[in-house]
Write a protein that binds this DNA or RNA. Structure first.
Length: 330
DNA sequence: TTCCTGGGAC
DNA sequence: GTCCCAGGAA
């Protein structure tokens, strides 16, 4: 075992956070935690993990659930394709793996929603497979310690960091090594205000010793954002609100929303309807959404489903609409 | 292979 | 403004 891995694993055993998915070898529970933690911080994902574990005690239970229910449980986490793929993967396990959750990285990657990172994480944590995880934490830790300025969002960068990560991983305890390097990135070698003065690698960290910590890792692409204008109608009839199901493609796929009219400008598309004193800019990864809300008169010929106000919470609704519904009427 | 898309919290 | 992976289209 190399010095890097030894130091890292020793640090981990003394500093690791006690998280529920770290006390199990069950690939189902580990998979659930990894999908939730994709693009999501531990403190935000923790309550969702408990919610899913409480509702689904096995992959079989999850495979039997409806997409609407899974999306409803997922509401507020974002990147809803993770929720839809969670259910699809559970069905795959039942149909293609006889209900036995796979533990090896090759078979794990066949499941919807599991890519390079998740397959390495689940196989090492549940079955000690020696395969390095490469997530945002790993890019950050390795780029700084070894002063690697290859952009991480390129094919070349991914290959280079993946090779290095696999050269460093412990043969004796790959699971702890993988947990450790990510925990280190999440708690010590952080994006902002890293704890360099308490870092066990500060003597050998090339970024720290050359004052490059804040310029690593390097990203090459800048995201371009589009701007969209959403006008939502709030239509109430006998204490029921009209909801419509969104298309299966694009943002908030298959979720429920207030009737929506999209325009290219800020101008209201409605001549008669009263605009409510509630508007907001909702920011997604590639889009700025300017949202306005209007009161509409009772109109029973409209498409959609009428839902009791106190039943709305059972439906998967985008955060921006949920905010409106829960706060405007307080 | 590369590029684009997809949510929410901080 | 920043951070967080994967799928599917090009």
């Amino acid at each position: 075992m190399n010095n890097f891995s030894t130091k890292l694993i020793n640090w981990y055993h003394n500093h690791k956070r006690d998280l529920p998915w770290r006390n199990t070898r069950d690939p189902f529970k580990i998979w659930l935690s990894e999908i939730i933690l994709q693009q999501t911080r531990v403190d935000q994902g923790l309550s969702y993990y408990h919610k899913f574990i409480d509702r689904f005690s096995s992959v079989k239970d999850l495979a039997k659930a409806s997409e609407d229910e899974v999306l409803s449980l997922w509401q507020g986490l974002g990147y809803y394709s993770r929720g839809r793929n969670l259910r699809k993967a559970a069905i795959q396990v039942m149909e293609e793996f006889n209900g036995v959750f796979p533990k090896d990285s090759v078979n794990l990657k066949k499941l919807k929603g599991i890519g390079d990172y998740s397959s390495a994480a689940i196989s090492s944590f549940s079955n000690d497979e020696k395969i390095a995880v490469v997530d945002g934490n790993v890019y950050r830790v390795l780029s700084r310690i070894f002063n690697i300025s290859t952009p991480i969002d390129t094919g070349q960068g991914k290959k280079e960091f993946n090779t290095l990560a696999n050269a460093l991983i412990s043969s004796i305890d790959p699971a702890s090594h993988n947990q450790a390097i990510m925990e280190y990135g999440a708690t010590v070698c952080t994006p902002k205000k890293p704890l360099c003065n308490n870092c066990i690698f500060s003597d050998q960290c090339e970024a720290f010793n050359n004052n490059l910590v804040y310029s690593l890792p390097v990203k090459s692409k800048k995201i371009k954002k589009s701007t969209r204008h959403f006008h939502f109608e709030f239509i109430l009839k006998e204490n029921k609100v009209l909801l419509q199901k969104r298309d299966e493609k694009g943002i908030w796929a298959n979720m429920f929303q207030l009737p929506l009219t999209e325009t290219t400008s800020d101008q209201s598309p409605f001549s008669e309807k009263i605009e409510l004193n509630w508007q907001c800019k909702h920011v997604l990864s590639h889009q700025n959404l300017f949202c306005k809300f209007y009161i509409s008169n009772d109109n029973s010929s409209r498409e959609g489903i009428w839902i009791e106000l106190n039943q709305v919470e059972k439906y998967a609704i985008p955060k921006v609409i949920d905010n409106f519904l829960s706060q405007y009427f307080q």
